[in-house]
């Protein structure tokens, strides 16, 4: 199984077709779409309607449509990633987006990050390092 995983990584294409680059692109699209979805959904919120649980009324917002375009782009990149990288590695790595949101708010918007949030960010970073290390070692040997 380990050999299978190494073979999967070793036969990966390079350049723009590099699955690691595609993973980064997928994360970037998801990051932007999260902000657009929240703004769009809040913009047209009508919680009185029974149908609003389905989220369909969110389609009235142009921001939601932009978010959908980004989600489609990230989805295509993600399918490509799944072709080459085991999901047990690719999916945890893709969750780097969960710390990029608060870090982005801190760096670009000057928002404060509480000690508890810093602890959470630290745990995610350690977790990402643990997941990514075996792959880094395989890449080094190439």
């Amino acid at each position: 199984m380990t050999n299978n995983r190494q073979r999967q990584t070793q036969t990966r294409p390079s350049g723009f077709a590099n699955p690691w680059l595609q993973l980064a692109l997928s994360v970037a699209c998801v990051l932007l779409s999260e902000f657009l979805l929240k703004r769009g959904a809040t913009e047209v919120a009508n919680t009185d309607s029974a149908w609003s649980w389905t989220g369909v009324n969110g389609l009235a917002s142009p921001l939601v449509w932009w978010a959908i375009l980004l989600i489609i782009a990230s989805f295509i990149s993600w399918l490509y990633v799944l072709r080459y990288i085991p999901i047990t590695i690719a999916f945890p790595l893709s969750r780097v987006v969960d710390i990029l949101v608060p870090l982005g708010c801190w760096i670009f918007l000057g928002e404060l990050i509480s000690p508890l949030r810093w602890c959470g960010i630290a745990l995610v970073v350690i977790g990402l390092a643990l997941v990514a290390k075996p792959i880094a070692q395989i890449e080094e040997r190439l």
């Binding site: 969960d98 602890c119 995610v124 350690i126 997941v131």
Partner: peptide
């Protein structure tokens, strides 16, 4: 690693 990422996201 997966557990730490999950706990980190919750925090």
């Amino acid at each position: 690693g997966a557990l730490l990422i999950s706990v980190g996201i919750v925090l």
